[in-house]
């Protein structure tokens, strides 16, 4: 498949702070890449470099087949950018904002007007189109901003945290709009702090932290890499815990993980349904009635926390760390629930 965006070894330094220390990316045409990372990871810096706003200290990149350093104008002809903070002229109406971009793109006045009307319609802003953008809500600004970046129908779209600060409805609506773009062939690079967003939208994900790619893959691959599926059993009375641990230890080669706080024991689900069946049978034999008996797929949140090391202990006690090193740890990893309380997930 054709590659719409490639980056090799992008590095960028601000003063004595290394914001990017070698970012590699590759986005096939017509797909969405989610760039996931905590505050200060280097998401915006990456996007600004790829959108020709910032020169990297080192590294090279192509966008829509054009070299960033050698053909910046061609790159600009092929991209749309929605920055982290909505870029709207507050003292123009929504319509004028879009028309101005159209005129600057030399569509001609009439075509610019037509395109503005079309985009306002598409983004549900027709009614508000003739109001000053100053009066727009955060969600409306975001939509206007996205609309403004689509005037030229760019084949490559950069979206820097497009839904940060939006309520659920607006977020869902924006997701829909982004998907529409991709369905019509656009390639999207979107940054986000929301794992759910990357999970929902992205065909592939790179996780960056401290200016480095620390993991990449499809959402499913990442989930598998860090945790896979686990069988979780919780009981109402802590007295039953040892019996549950014994039962689960018997059905899985890995070491059961215990959370005293929630009285939950879990093991990686290696044998599929057979494991579930024998665990259930084992508990039944012992006469233990679990409060909860569930198969849990690790979420991208787990992946993210495990990879970035933020609130690492909580993540390790729940799923991640031991999932990877199953069988090598102590007989039963008992999580420290006090630590858990302190750290917000």
């Amino acid at each position: 498949m054709e590659t719409a965006i490639t980056a090799e070894g992008l590095r960028k330094r601000y003063g004595d702070h290394q914001a990017l220390s070698g970012i590699d990316l590759s986005v096939p045409a017509g797909t969405i890449l989610g760039v996931l990372g905590p505050n200060g990871a280097g998401k915006t810096t990456t996007v600004r470099i790829l959108a020709t706003l910032l020169e990297p200290d080192e590294g090279r990149a192509t966008v829509a087949g054009y070299d960033l350093a050698k053909q910046p104008l061609q790159v600009r002809r092929n991209i749309g950018l929605t920055g982290q903070y909505a870029a709207v002229d507050e003292r123009l109406t929504g319509r004028e904002n879009i028309e101005l971009i159209g005129v600057l793109l030399h569509l001609g006045r009439r075509a610019a007007k037509a395109r503005a009307a079309e985009l306002l319609e598409q983004f549900g802003l027709t009614d508000a189109g003739d109001r000053m953008a100053k009066t727009y809500s955060g969600g409306m600004r975001r939509r206007l901003d996205l609309a403004a970046s689509l005037v030229a129908r760019p084949p490559v779209l950069f979206l820097d945290e497009p839904t940060t600060g939006l309520d659920l409805t607006s977020r869902l609506a924006l997701w829909g709009m982004i998907r529409e773009q991709v369905d019509s062939g656009t390639t999207v690079l979107l940054t986000t702090q929301y794992l759910e967003e990357a999970d929902q939208l992205a065909d592939s994900i790179v996780v960056i932290d401290n200016g480095r790619v620390i993991a990449d893959g499809t959402p499913d691959e990442l989930k598998r890499k860090v945790g896979g599926e686990r069988l979780e059993v919780s009981v109402a009375d802590a007295v039953d815990l040892p019996a549950v641990i014994r039962t689960l230890a018997a059905v899985s080669p890995a070491v059961p993980v215990v959370d005293d706080e929630t009285r939950t024991v879990s093991v990686p689900l290696t044998g599929g349904v057979a494991t579930i069946a024998s665990a259930a049978a084992g508990l039944e034999t012992l006469g233990i009635e679990p409060e909860d008996f569930a198969v849990r797929r690790s979420s991208l949140d787990d992946v993210f926390l495990a990879l970035t090391g933020q609130t690492g202990r909580a993540a390790a006690s729940d799923t991640a760390g031991d999932g990877k090193e199953a069988g090598q740890g102590p007989v039963a990893a008992v999580s420290n629930s006090k630590q858990k309380e302190k750290e917000p997930a």
Binding site: R48, L53, R77, G80, L81, A87, V88, D89, L104, L105
Partner: peptide, 13 residues
Amino acid sequence: NNGLVDRFRALPI
């Protein structure tokens, strides 16, 4: 600070 300069700079103008 409104981000407009970024927007304009990313346009082929």
